[in-house]
Design a binder for these strands. Structure first.
Lengths: 214, 214
DNA sequence: TATTATACATACATTTCTGTACGTATGTAG
DNA sequence: CTACATACGTACAGAAATGTATGTATAATA
């Protein structure tokens, strides 16, 4: 079988990407040869070298397929949505992250590869720097959200928005990591929801109604 | 230079371990050859194969050198120390973790390798399972600590010890990960201390003095 | 002091992966 | 219908790493 039509070529490209995700997940990125990916995809190395320049290129293509739509929806939509209060937006954001990771197995598989099945050295170190960068931006958005909550009188007094944002960033980071690890405790939707509620409740005003002004 | 005395042999073993840590950190575990480690240690591959059976054995030896004394001091000493209240023990525990990781560069280097420079596949997957196991035990100890805090009237009412413990596990996990990532925000001792204080304060009784009995 | 086990260095055989060059059959455009 | 670009498969050369076998000088030991 050779030169099929254009859509068929696109399909083998997708097959290669899916096979890469599977084999990377089983054997690690550095430990898989292009031959193994080709076999899993039902093609030869020639097909891979046609669609991608090398393993790193294939790997990056696999990542971008999921990481781009993930974060875009998340912090842009949820942290700026004007139809709910700041702390409600925060809660919705946390819930959406966990349910998305829980339901989208393809995304989870890729994130597991990024977390446990690849080595950030050489060229890949830049990806870590990018990750730090995005975390900083995320932290900024969280801080602005908490600042808005404070202006709305929603934030617990004595809690600095910056510290609250830091702790939420830590919360999200740890929650995702434990979930990807496969910890049973963070896979029970009920407990996760309770944690998120506790996290949000611990930064809103104790029992009082929020004040209306400064 | 050949067969030096026994202590000299032990020294080359340590040299090999140190070189492995350095080169693993620079080039990743899967991407470094024993030849490169040997060069960095000033020996040949023969020396490495004398002291270790293969790269995996060398890697595990490098890990055990730091991971063993780390956790032992941590959850055993700090969560059972009877000279302070449960929430004080928790706070001390969190402070000690962060300062230890901050100061012990050798430990941090190894943890960075474990977090970003190796692939958990094949034999190494068992290490992930072990890590989950230790996290479960850690979670249990946290829960018992919170249960003790509740019995002491220290715990904020309405907060289940299990949920509080889960959130603290998430907190520690995320904090360590962001620190190892190199996020500047979690390297400022002042902010980290403020976060830890906020975390602990958010689970103790609002403003009241703790009750003295059940 | 002679012998043996130790602590390496050296040399070699084997495997494995990569990148590229080349072949080839088929869409597709003119 | 011809010609070219496309979408692969195949074959080859080179590098690199691993494990082992072997050499060897010294420390330990009797």
């Amino acid at each position: 079988m050779v030169r099929r039509t254009k859509e068929e070529a696109e399909q083998t490209r997708r097959q290669i990407l899916a096979a890469a995700r599977q084999v990377f997940h089983e054997r690690g990125v550095g430990n898989t040869s292009l031959e193994q990916i080709a076999q899993a995809a039902g093609v030869t190395r020639g097909a891979i070298y046609w669609h991608f320049v090398n393993k790193e290129d294939l790997f990056k293509a696999m990542c971008q397929k999921v990481t781009i739509p993930f974060l875009d929806r998340m912090d842009y939509t949820l942290l700026v949505d004007p139809s709910s209060t700041p702390l409600e937006r925060l809660r919705n954001f946390l819930l959406q992250i966990t349910t998305t990771v829980q339901q989208d197995e393809c995304l989870r598989c890729t994130m597991e590869i990024l977390n446990f099945k690849c080595e950030y050295v050489g060229e890949m170190e830049k990806d870590l720097a990018d990750y730090i960068e995005r975390n900083e931006e995320f932290l900024d958005k969280l801080e602005r959200t908490y600042a808005a909550a404070r202006r709305a009188g929603q934030l617990r007094p004595g809690l600095a928005p910056r510290i609250a944002a830091l702790e939420t960033l830590v919360f999200v980071t740890g929650l995702l990591r434990l979930r990807l690890l496969g910890m049973p405790a963070v896979q029970r939707a009920h407990d996760v929801r309770a944690m998120i509620d506790a996290h949000v409740r611990s930064r809103q005003c104790p029992q009082r109604e929020p004040a209306t002004t400064t």
